[in-house]
Design a protein around this nucleic acid. Sequence first.
DNA 1: GTCTATATAGTGATAGAC
DNA 2: GTCTATCACTATATAGAC
Lengths: 224, 224
Amino acid sequence: MPSDRSESRTEILDAAEARFARQGFDGTTIKQIAGDARVNSALLYYYFADKDALYGAVVSRFIERIAAQVAQTFAGGGDPATLIADFAARQGGVFEAEPRFRKLLGRELIDFDARHAQAAIRHLAATTFERLRETIAEGQRAGVFRADLDPRFAAISLVGQTAYFHFARPAVEILLADGKPLPAGTTDAFAAHVADFTLAALAPRSPSRPRPRARATARRRNRT
Amino acid sequence: MPSDRSESRTEILDAAEARFARQGFDGTTIKQIAGDARVNSALLYYYFADKDALYGAVVSRFIERIAAQVAQTFAGGGDPATLIADFAARQGGVFEAEPRFRKLLGRELIDFDARHAQAAIRHLAATTFERLRETIAEGQRAGVFRADLDPRFAAISLVGQTAYFHFARPAVEILLADGKPLPAGTTDAFAAHVADFTLAALAPRSPSRPRPRARATARRRNRT
DNA sequence: GTCTATATAGTGATAGAC
DNA sequence: GTCTATCACTATATAGAC
């Protein structure tokens, strides 16, 4: 995949990215994209086989850009606890800096089960997620994290807190601010909370001061 | 809002719920819904003002049903740690038992910024989320949870882990199972992990055994 | 309440000139 | 590479018979 075969191709991709993020796949028309890119709508079929191929190019390009940003967490190295905290801060920062991320990836996950993003996510799984998992495992071996947690589950717990906060933003605004926009600084505050919460969860069990334990309860069936 | 004004109305709502969950708002046509409900497409405009009103009725009805299930966590009462663990199990169970939940709410959050679900989510915020927050605050007052966490942020951390696991299911399958369906029992195992992880995060700081701390690092700016 | 019939306005995509 | 012109189809929504 050459990156900028021509000027028009890039402008089509840029216009399509904005439209697909705002309106989704079905809600966006070829003519809207062409109009935004100031080219004729027939030209889109010169560069891309059909609408789905254009969408796929937009999504994979976008996710790769995001993945590169998150990967920087591990560029410098550091001890496990510091890397965990850095990751939380960076993940929150990316959601802030990339306003299209929430809708573009959210729609890809819901509307297409990540079909177009599969290659990019697979790459992410082999690099950043693997580094995150290994960082947790390393902390466990060193005795600074508790050893009886599955490092992959722990990594998902970390990623999931921040991801939910941003993907479900309209719901979070209702929960925290009565539906109004969140006060300035809330997303940074939550990112700091995620680091704190996660490092506390990973802390070794204290023998002197037992953690709170849930009493066994009959697991009730959910009505359906 | 009367609940079942007529037989046809309910069948239209049921058919619409299935279609909107599977295909989204723009991807679903009035004629598809009418066909599934075995009525003429013009009849939909007798019961609902337009497509958007039908969609709104579907979404609010659905979320209210889900909210009622999650609310059962607090029906019996119990100590804070047990309630937290019960909530995690129940939230995971609801995602399993309601396969439409992921797509229907996900799309509502992304495509409409929760516009149609606002009343239902507001109700949820005032009841279940408030009970969850209060449960955490109660544990803090009793000294079984650490006191220096914002109970609302902690509640979002709890809810978010499970929500992310299910909303981002296609990505999680790549992370955990190389893109194949998750092995049986994985969602229950993750729900148990969430309870464990969250209760550990809420445990009081141990004075003897300090938790892992991140060293202060220069917070790097993200490229945009 | 439920239907037939249709107006109106697009939609994605293609053929082919330049 | 980029455009004009257009096809074949489908969309939501309404008027009005029964």
